[in-house]
Amino acid sequence: MLREYAGPLLGRGSVVAVSETALAILQGRFVRPERVRPGPLARFLARFVSRTGSLSSPFALQLVMQEHGRARVALAFLVGVITRLLLGRSGDLYRIAGPQASLVDDVTGTLPPYDKHIVLGPKDPQRVVEEIRRRTGSEAAVIDANDLGGVSIVAATRGVNRAHLREVFRTNPWGNGDEQTPILILRYSTSSAPPPRLRGLAS
């Protein structure tokens, strides 16, 4: 697919950035909530997540439990509550529960036709970026970015300058609306790293 849509832009000196949601959808990692049966633990724990988080849905939480195990997720909740109350630290729940906890998108979190689906994070993203590099010669990264300035590099090949990539995606050139941009190619004006500036962005 990359060759078909971005063939002439690929090769040494460019970085292929792939949206984590687009990759997950390509891997078939989406499911309608009607097909998920949340267990008592998911129903119980989801009650304690802020309503803006995807894990506040027992359906999304159940899927994360199926990925990482109920015990691990339950432990993450326990530690998360303790460190938040005692140390005032947030985010331990997502750090301990496993990568899917922060990557999962609840319904309405993705564009149509997947707006009625829960979309999990991609499977084996590191393997995917290595494969892209092997086949195209480009460095590659899987990125989760949003319009609020949040950037998470889910996986990247060794040649990727992560700090620079984070800076580029802080303004979210993909967009969170109807832009529907699954791939972004970064090409640098010189082959030296770190690159001084971007020459062009293409999707």
Binding site: P33, E34, R43, A46, R47, R51, S56, S57, P58, F59, V107
Partner: peptide
Amino acid sequence: LAIYFEFVGRKQI
């Protein structure tokens, strides 16, 4: 007109 709508909140569909 009969209108049937589905929604999901914190608890159930």
